[in-house]
């Protein structure tokens, strides 16, 4: 059972929808269904004091179903505590609702996640590529995207 105060509050509000609570090195991660992400974020911001979205990123667990996880790093400026929120996204339906309505800072993070990981954010105000050129194909941070780039032989090391 987690010691983290926000976990109890989340369980009280969302019950079974809190799918998983993990602890590692004193840091807490909470997994929620992706349909609930906006409701959970709004609740955490308004009722638990997690008013700052530090970071947002996608993770590709190739070979697992569901394949992707979107990770939100939250910070409470009042109590100076962190909480990690996660939502899993399937490859076949690679979308999740945007949280730009909760924190405007999510705007560029979500664009980056779309650009590099290929997870779309529903109702995002401006979902364009951000780091790569507009005509780029593919999403480089996916695990099946080769590090040397597409259509190139992998580096084999020195031949001598």
């Amino acid at each position: 059972m987690s010691e983290h105060p926000a976990v109890a509050q989340l369980k009280g509000q969302f019950g079974d929808k809190v799918l998983k609570v993990e602890e590692f090195r004193g840091q807490t991660s909470v997994t929620v269904p992706k349909e609930e992400i906006v409701a959970v974020c709004t609740f955490l911001r308004d009722s638990c004091g997690y008013n700052f979205l530090t970071d947002l990123c996608g993770v590709d667990y190739l070979g697992r179903t569901p394949r992707f996880t979107v990770v939100y790093q939250l910070y409470n400026i009042g109590t100076h505590t962190r909480l990690r929120l996660k939502a899993e996204v399937e490859e076949a339906d690679c979308r999740i609702d945007t949280v730009t309505g909760v924190w405007s800072t999510a705007n560029w993070f979500e664009r980056e996640c779309w650009d590099l990981m290929g997870i779309a954010f529903v109702d995002h105000p401006d979902l364009r590529r951000i780091l790569l050129p507009e005509d780029w194909s593919g999403h480089p941070l996916r695990k099946d995207y080769p590090v040397q780039g597409p259509d190139r032989e992998p580096y084999q090391g020195r031949l001598s």
């Binding site: 590692f24 090195r25 840091q27 991660s29 530090t54 993770v59 990770v71 790093q73």
Partner: peptide, 20 residues
């Protein structure tokens, strides 16, 4: 196996590393 996020106060603001 595990994951951590650590942020430090850079001159420009918070720089954080999320490692899995």
């Amino acid at each position: 196996p595990g994951e951590v996020y650590v942020g430090v106060e850079n001159p420009k603001g918070e720089v954080g590393y999320y490692l899995i």
